[in-house]
Computed example of a mutant assay.
Amino acid sequence: MNILYVILTSICSIVALFVLTKLMGNRQLSQMSMFDYINGITIGSIAAEFATNLENPLHSFTAMVVYALAAIGISLCTCHSIKLRKFFNGQPLVLYSHNKLYKKNLACAKMDINEFLTQCRIAGYFDLNQLESAILETNGQVSFLPLAEQRPITASDLGVTLQPEVLPYYVVLDGKLIDANLQASGRDEKWLEKELHALGMTQLSDIFFAAIDTKGKLYAIPMLEEKRQHNCFE
């Protein structure tokens, strides 16, 4: 009987976590503030307690709701108050600028020079002379501003006018037609059949993925069941 009770409370905790997460907003770990991270760990721990607490599961559930409401309240406050936003989320921190490394700011960021250089290399900067500035953002990521002569040339630099980019339309996923996307693209099934036939494909079930690209052309990837034997990462 206790096993069944644990199963039921576990299912309830999963449902509760899902609902509370949707209310709080599901952001990636790298986008979380310190409060979001702490709150997420705490709610997860309470959810586990809720699933296994056979005597007073309601207490754990109430605590989960309180933490979630606190997160929602703080999120609303930070949206409307700059001072509270700075208090809960912090401020960006300049680590490097104009060929100067700021040791105190690195210390505030709990980051040593080796870790900073690692972050530079991950971003593609192996030479600090390529950088104008490096800033620690409030989500824990380091953003980099390259020197003007190191940044890629853009169309505006060359005086070239480009056509606006548009999002591609995914029209076939896992062998199934996404009819709403096909209609939104301004095409119909006859057009799709014609394009697929030109690519040597006749059955939707044989297509793993197909999309209409930004130029209005269809590209498709066939469904392959066999497993690739060679793994170049081994």
Results as ranks from 00 to 15, higher is better:
residue 129 N to W: 00
residue 234 E to M: 12
residue 38 I to M: 15
residue 160 V to A: 09
residue 129 N to Y: 02
residue 129 N to R: 03
residue 62 T to G: 08
residue 104 K to T: 09
residue 139 N to K: 05
residue 131 L to S: 01
residue 222 P to Y: 02
residue 79 C to N: 14
residue 221 I to D: 02
residue 105 N to R: 03
residue 210 A to K: 01
residue 132 E to K: 13
residue 155 A to W: 06
residue 110 K to P: 03
residue 117 L to Y: 15
residue 45 S to I: 07
residue 220 A to E: 10
residue 214 T to G: 11
residue 181 N to V: 00
residue 126 F to C: 07
residue 182 L to A: 05
residue 156 S to Q: 13
residue 65 V to C: 13
residue 108 C to S: 14
residue 194 K to T: 04
residue 171 V to S: 04
residue 173 L to R: 11
residue 92 P to A: 07
residue 113 I to Q: 09
residue 120 C to K: 01
residue 206 D to Y: 00
residue 144 F to M: 02
residue 77 C to S: 13
residue 55 E to K: 11
residue 101 L to T: 09
residue 197 H to D: 11
residue 216 G to Q: 00
residue 206 D to W: 01
residue 104 K to Q: 11
residue 98 H to V: 07
residue 65 V to K: 04
residue 190 K to L: 08
residue 68 A to P: 00
residue 151 R to G: 02
residue 193 E to A: 10
residue 93 L to C: 14
residue 170 Y to N: 13
residue 137 E to M: 08
residue 178 I to P: 03
residue 106 L to A: 01
residue 70 A to P: 15
residue 177 L to A: 06
residue 110 K to G: 04
residue 207 I to H: 01
residue 186 G to D: 00
residue 233 F to Y: 12
residue 112 D to K: 00
residue 88 F to M: 14
residue 62 T to P: 00
residue 51 A to L: 01
residue 66 V to E: 05
residue 52 T to M: 12
residue 152 P to Y: 06
residue 73 G to W: 12
residue 168 P to T: 04
residue 65 V to H: 10
residue 221 I to M: 08
residue 75 S to N: 15
residue 27 R to Y: 14
residue 123 A to C: 06
residue 32 M to T: 04
residue 196 L to C: 08
residue 158 L to P: 01
residue 108 C to F: 09
residue 115 E to F: 14
residue 208 F to C: 04
residue 207 I to E: 01
residue 92 P to H: 00
residue 126 F to R: 02
residue 2 N to H: 08
residue 69 L to N: 03
residue 227 K to L: 09
residue 120 C to Y: 01
residue 215 K to T: 13
residue 45 S to M: 10
residue 136 L to I: 09
residue 142 V to K: 04
residue 77 C to W: 07
residue 153 I to C: 09
residue 233 F to G: 06
residue 48 A to K: 03
residue 160 V to D: 03
residue 65 V to I: 15
residue 19 V to W: 10
residue 102 Y to H: 15
residue 62 T to H: 10
residue 191 W to P: 03
residue 202 T to Q: 11
residue 203 Q to H: 12
residue 72 I to A: 11
residue 111 M to Y: 11
residue 50 F to D: 02
residue 106 L to D: 05
residue 92 P to W: 06
residue 194 K to D: 11
residue 172 V to G: 02
residue 140 G to K: 05
residue 22 K to G: 06
residue 21 T to G: 13
residue 44 G to C: 06
residue 210 A to Y: 05
residue 88 F to L: 14
residue 43 I to K: 01
residue 234 E to A: 13
residue 186 G to V: 07
residue 1 M to N: 10
residue 196 L to Q: 01
residue 230 H to V: 10
residue 12 C to D: 08
